[in-house]
Amino acid sequence: MKILVCMSNVPDTTTKVTFAENNTKFNTQGVQFIINPYDELALTRALEITEKQTGTVTVVNVGLADTEPNVRKALAIGAHEAVRINAEPLDAYFVAEQIAHYAKGENFDVILTGRESIDYNGGMVAGLLGEMLNMPSINVITAIEIENGIAHLERDIDGGREKLDCPIPFVASAQKELTEPRIPNMRGIMAARTKPLKVLEPTGSQANTLTTSFELPAPKGACKLIDVADAGKLIELLHTEAKVI
């Protein structure tokens, strides 16, 4: 079983989001970057699958050299090898093209992404990759078992759950609940030093969207406090003042 896990490098969830250069760039000053939490789940599940039935897990990131500490961390968690495609991830389409170009010659059985990256929340890479590689794509999976070349999956759907089967190869995006993330241990960290981390140059594709500026939401006005004794008044205010019920 050959599994590819796509990994993005995102600001830590406690980050106070601010922008620089006239609101055209995310301000990375003092920001700690982590492996996108959903990708961490995908990676852990991929490792569990290969431990049960042999195989390899490759991690791929489209990013500049500053993502390397987290790529190494993925190796420390247990990935067998890593690939960094040396380009700024301009948009989801661009990222998917880069990964598809790399994956085409590699015959992966399963390609896992996260449900979305917690910074840009696009959730588009899995579907784009599926189409570019001519594979089915299954979004937001909460369970996966693979037996004799067939995956049994569960995924979230609007207002419910679906169980489905899909033959390999396919792309799927990981949702919480897939497994519990693993933390690298000392042995893993030592082993990671000697594991291969390949750096590939990007293909010539261009991004077809361009983020021109960012804005923070307007701050909320003061909170209107209601006394506990008058708590029922809330309903009236929501009707007459806020007009939401």
Binding site: D91, A92, Y93, A96, N121, G122, G123, M124, V125, A126, G127, L128, G130, E131, M132, S137, I138, N139, V140, D156, I157, D158, N208, T209
Partner: peptide, 23 residues
């Protein structure tokens, strides 16, 4: 941008070489 919409939109975009924005 529902669960189904998110599954379909990127595939359609790739089929049509279209720029895509979600959310």
């Amino acid at each position: 941008n529902t669960y189904s919409g998110k599954t379909i939109a990127p595939r359609t975009a790739a089929q049509l070489s279209a720029g895509i924005v979600s959310g």
